[in-house]
Design a protein around this nucleic acid. Structure first.
Lengths: 352, 352
DNA sequence: AGTCGTGTTGGTAACGTTACCACAACAGTC
DNA sequence: GACTGTTGTGGTAACGTTACCAACACGACT
């Protein structure tokens, strides 16, 4: 034991400093090892001593130093790095909540970071999380350069990709069945007789956007139709840019009769454009000619059912996606298995 | 240096195991101390050696073990615990984003947890975060038992309260000017001539709810009016329960002519109730008698401007609240100061 | 030539924890 | 009464890092 010859400062330090296992041991009149054993579950410790130790723990307000514990070989940190693109999008907030729901049940904590769709920021976060020795990573990949997510770069830290896949990287993955959802939504519009259907979405370099466009295209093909290139607008990532794109479409000589929107940001922009148009027409007292334009949008969002337009949404469960991602990670951690990576695909549902 | 006499296993281990500062030192032909110095900023290290070290770091993909580093006395973990009540509420998601925006600039990472308004869960999260030696805490307190947030319990870990205060706990705080906002919104309704104004909100035991009710009450008093008790409904915390409460109000013999809603969950419930009523009246072809009911709601929410009702919202900047909370914490960390706790109050704005 | 700084480098120890080994105490067996 | 096994307990070392001190080399000055 360390000798404390400086009486006055020692007392002062004892109050403010966080108590260690050593302090508890001294207080209970046992060795640090016994304290450690009690806290680990109390196997083969005499009941009387166990009580003394627990009393000392309570009295000093002792908390195990998790950082020191995880330093020992074979010990986990109990930390998971979660990198999402943007929590302010309710879809990813739900995802985070689902992840936490599953992992907190295992006493695992979340280190979260927002990449803002920036691969460089994502790489930086991954590097930092590795430095903190997370037990695993759950990432919504931003795309672009993904070398930092390769197996070689991560070592033996398990990775779960959420919402998006990456070409060339094999890892546990949870995604939405984007293709089927977009197919179903688009088919509904075609079934209703629409032939001039606009598409609004993110850049097709984004995994989900590409898949949703594929579903959009497939629905056309299956119906013997073709996608009309001049009605396709890909590249909007927020409501404002989507609104601009939609207003541009409405000004076309031959505007679309229906719109397929590939995500909730774009859908909201579309709805704003439609309302702006309706308002501008209502001034001269005329009935707006395109107010009955049909909209189908991927992703549900709060109040979608309160919109004063003909709108259907392709809904899916972001929280469940987060839960599944958490479960895949737990499976990897529990059994130290090298099974082939699993891919979970969650269904969508067209809400009428 | 440790002698590795087991040649075969050592090689295998070298590939999968995370490299340490020792490995880098051996690889560069210097001592671990020199590597540490280079990584700390490279003061008084010969340029040639510095280069060799950096090359070894790059080649081995070495990452400093932050947990081991923070074990040393005087060293920080660079971790902040953020406890919010529920990320799936966009208001708190924005708050989290604001906190991250400010703290990631200081290279501080976020440990996040959702309390779900449960004080026991909050206490558990605080205890865990203390065990991980966070440098500080940002908490949206759930209320109830708050002993775990007392200065005695936290030791010298700085605490910032966000969005809500706690009686008896002095800490840096960032809140919205709830009273003024509610006063302004209610006054607007009174100015328009409304005399039967309903109130819907959370339990008044929640800090913000109480303050917003106070503002509601003060607006009445200042206008020489009194709050009508039968029109007050406090206790709804989600849209579904709020909708029920509002429907009940609409069925009163003498229903309110206007509604003040104290948060976005309640506002959405109110709007749903109004729409349900409008739909039920539209069946017999009758004009609904209360469709022109006025609504003013605290908190803005996405698409609030697209609602087919007369709605004003009292908006405020949740992300800015998060930023301010982060800044207060950084200030506490930077200078190791014992200044009196600061209280920042953010303004609201009635959106017409 | 000897002394003194100055700049560069490495050894040692410690942060708080737990795995491993050693050992003591005790009961049961021949 | 010596031997064996079981249970409870503590000492030691190590995880990866950095603060501190000691030591070294080297040029500049007396």
């Amino acid at each position: 034991m360390t000798v404390r010859d400086d009486t006055e400062p020692a007392q002062h330090r004892r109050i403010s400093a966080v108590p260690t296992i050593h302090d508890v041991a001294t207080h209970a009149g046992v060795s640090p090892m016994t304290v450690s054993r009690v806290l680990a579950g109390g196997t083969s410790v005499r009941p009387a001593k166990m009580e003394r130790v627990l009393a000392a723990v309570a009295e000093l307000g002792y908390r195990k130093n998790e950082n020191a514990r995880s330093l020992r070989p074979g010990q986990r940190t109990g930390l998971i790095g979660v990198i999402i693109t943007n929590v302010s999008n309710p879809y990813y907030a739900e995802l985070q909540l689902g992840v936490e729901e599953v992992l907190s049940a295992e006493n695992i904590r979340l280190l979260v970071g927002n990449s803002g769709e920036d691969p460089a920021r994502e790489r930086q976060l991954v590097a930092d999380f590795i430095g903190r020795h997370v037990d695993g990573l759950i990432v919504v990949p931003a795309g672009g350069d993904t070398a930092h997510l390769s197996e070689r770069s991560l070592g033996n830290i398990p990775l779960v990709l959420a919402s998006r896949e990456i070409e060339g990287i094999t890892a546990d993955t949870v995604i939405i069945d984007d293709v089927a959802g977009a197919f179903e939504g688009t088919s509904q519009l075609i079934r209703e007789g629409h032939r001039r259907i606009a598409y609004l979405g993110n850049m097709t370099s984004v995994f989900t956007s590409k898949r949703r466009f594929d579903g959009f295209e497939k629905a056309h093909k299956d119906a013997g139709l073709e996608v009309i290139p001049e009605l396709v607008r890909a590249g909007q990532h927020d409501p404002a840019t989507a609104q601009d794109a939609m207003e541009e479409l409405l000004r076309l000589p031959d505007p679309p009769t229906a719109v397929f929107s590939a995500n909730n940001r774009n859908t909201i922009g579309v709805l704003r454009a439609l309302r702006a148009e309706a308002l501008s027409y209502s001034l001269p007292g005329d009935t707006p000619p395109t107010s009955d334009i049909r909209v189908v949008g991927f992703d549900n969002f709060e109040l979608s059912d309160m919109m004063p337009f003909l709108l259907n949404v392709i809904e899916h469960d972001a929280r469940e996606l987060g839960r599944q991602a958490g479960k895949l990670l737990i499976r990897r951690l529990r059994e130290d298995n090298n099974d082939a990576p699993r891919k979970v695909q969650l269904p969508t549902h067209l809400r009428i």
